[in-house]
Design a binder for these strands. Structure first.
Lengths: 386, 386
DNA sequence: AACTTAGTTTGTCGGATGTACAAAGTCGGA
DNA sequence: TCCGACTTTGTACATCCGACAAACTAAGTT
């Protein structure tokens, strides 16, 4: 039984449209909203009235006249509530408190030296609790918790498998909801990163974008037609485990020649070990100092990354590719080799109108995406998009 | 200015839902439609009344009573109009006339020995004209022409590039519309093939499926969330030109180690040449006779295909992979190697709930998909889906 | 006769729309 | 500087449309 149409549906649609416009393009007057959306002036008036009652919109005062009565300018009420965004990393927990526009009002980073699920969960809870204490008063208070994790998550919010944490079947969503009594949204780190960049970062211009999260491994978040594409079971985007070398090295996943064996932080450090380097930051320092081996290593990584990206371009024909994760720190040395290889290997028509950029939120793509997840779940609870 | 909601939108949505239900699950009574859709009985009555007035639904008579008044059974009026479906191949033009349920009522196949755009276009027009003459009388007559082509098509219906036909920038849609004064829909052969299998063939069960068209090259049609995904500019699905071998052979596309150099009819025939074989059918004959070299060739092709498919699975997490194109003729020898390699190389969670099948419409996937394109454009002109 | 099921009719309700209008401006000319 | 003409903003009100619930008719079964 699918969603059918009735008057309530119509109202939900229109109210969402009005809120969305004000949220993304404020300040706006009622008249401008009517103009921009095509909705009747009276309709806009009524809906804005409700949104003001909902504390989601407020009047900021009079604007400039353009030859007639002065307009009443409307703003999105970004402090009507706050969201918690979490990135559960392999070696850290990053938590932020944001307003409804995704501005960070508090931030905490806790290094992680343990991996046991229950231990980690306890620290996670502590972090969130500390953050909640710092939340300002607001009409709605904390509206939800969003979290990105380094693993595969099913529809019920259970982490099925997180290789780098060595977790299996951990019902994180349910446990967090029980702990805090707040709505919890959870997804793969690459998916929330994609969402973050699309909403607040370098991805705002494109509706068909692929966010590549290049860290220990290579994951991706796929946004098609403006929406996150999760695949049939919610596991889409494991681009790090596509094979680019039929008889390449064996990967822990069972496949051979996986992209992330050649183009990831893990692959990079493995090779850098022979140079006596054991962290990404060290390697970046060397490159900054102009060490040829370091530069060569980055160039090679960029080239492999370009191969993976060309494959994505030919398959998906996205409008934008965003490179994120740890690897954004090496943008200076990666940019050219990536671009060159993509130019060589992708199809000409696909390349037209395509952009390749680096994530602009840097280390915050995922936390902000996670927070936005919670925010959009709150703002558009029963939203219907056409 | 986006689509906003009003009463007309509601009606369009509901009318589409009712028609869709009757079209796909007839015979149904009004009461059953109400039950299945969740729409009020009165609403269904009114909408069915209109659909009957539109000649799209008719009453077939009384059905079985289940303890009360006998229901009036409704049927989709599949002969209210006819659609033309065309597959423009490299060596042939296949045209069909179908009713609105996609049943073929007339079919023509013309071998093509020319490639010049104007020549081909002329023959195409002749074929269509001959088909139109054979169309039965019906309330709507011919409702549209759908066509699948072996190349890249832009949003305006221009064939930008068709390598195997050696065409560039040919405005096929506009020319056909001028010629026949009928609505024309046009898309890549793999995309219409995907649509055909999804609608009438082996893909009816899945909303996230990838149709692999394995013929001279390897293309794909990607259906996500029940809709065809075209990419940012409409060129998605060139999976044949994803690289599976970094330093593999050069491909005409500029890339190296492209999948279709290893797993396509073209690749197969190239290798079969040394056996004195120069057509796909000959190779199949040999395999049927049990010739070890032929069997080995198919096995190898299946293995490479499996590698490409594993990459697709890990990237997209589809619910179903359909193998179509010429290669369906070799299902018997391909099935096992493909399955084996996919089992070895795809991620376990992605493999769960995934099916790999061969296209069930065989050579008709594309024509029927093309016809369905035209049919759905007619039935759901201003449809809005939620 | 009592109960079921199918389908229609009728009145109600919610929400978008168009029109009219009041409020509050701008602007140009005397 | 003042005044009248015109603009723009936002609200009020009557109307229309379509879904819905409930009552009702029709036609069966048990």
């Amino acid at each position: 039984m699918q969603t059918t149409g009735d008057q309530f549906l119509v109202k939900k649609i229109n109210k969402s449209i009005v809120l969305e416009k004000i949220r993304t393009e404020s300040p706006l007057s009622r008249a401008q909203v009517s103009e921009l959306t095509g909705l009747n002036k009276g309709t806009v008036s009524a809906l804005v009235g409700e949104l003001i009652g909902d504390h989601l919109v407020y009047e900021i005062g009079l604007g400039q006249s353009s030859g007639g009565r002065k307009p009443v300018m409307l703003h999105f009420h970004k402090t009507a509530g706050y969201a918690v965004g979490i990135e559960l990393g392999v070696t850290f927990i990053l938590t932020v408190l944001t307003d409804l526009e995704g501005h960070i009002v508090a931030e905490q980073r806790l290094p992680l030296d343990v991996k046991q699920p229950d231990e980690v969960f306890e620290r996670l809870v502590q972090q969130v609790r500390a953050l909640l204490d710092r939340a300002p008063q607001s009409p709605y208070g904390i509206i939800g918790i969003g979290i990105g994790v380094p693993g595969i998550v099913d529809a019920s919010g259970t982490i099925l498998f997180a290789p780098n944490l060595q977790w299996e079947s951990f019902p994180l969503k349910i446990k967090l909801e029980q702990e805090f009594g707040l709505p919890v949204t959870i997804d793969n780190e690459a998916n929330v990163g994609a969402l973050g960049e699309k909403q607040y970062g370098a991805g705002q211009t494109s509706d068909d974008l692929i966010y590549l999260s290049v860290s220990t491994g290579v994951g991706s978040g796929i946004i098609l037609g403006g929406r996150l594409f999760r695949g049939a079971s919610g596991f889409s985007g494991e681009i790090g485990h596509t094979s680019i070398e039929v008889n390449g090295r064996r990967c822990s996943c069972g496949n051979r020649g996986c992209l992330e064996l050649y183009a990831s932080e893990g692959a990079l450090l493995e090779q850098a070990a022979s140079m006596g380097i054991d962290s990404f930051d060290q390697l970046v320092e060397r490159a900054e100092a102009g060490a040829p081996e370091a530069l060569q290593l980055f160039r090679q990584t960029g080239e492999y990354l370009g191969i993976g990206i060309a494959n994505i371009i030919n398959s998906f024909n996205p409008g934008l590719i965003l490179i994120g994760g740890q690897m954004v720190g090496a943008e200076a040395w990666l940019r050219n080799p990536v671009q060159r290889v993509v130019r060589q290997r992708s199809l000409p028509y696909h390349r037209e109108g395509l952009e390749i950029r680096f994530a602009s939120l840097k280390m915050h793509s995922a936390v902000l995406g996670a927070a936005y997840y919670a925010i959009s779940a709150f703002l558009y609870k029963d939203r219907v998009t056409l």
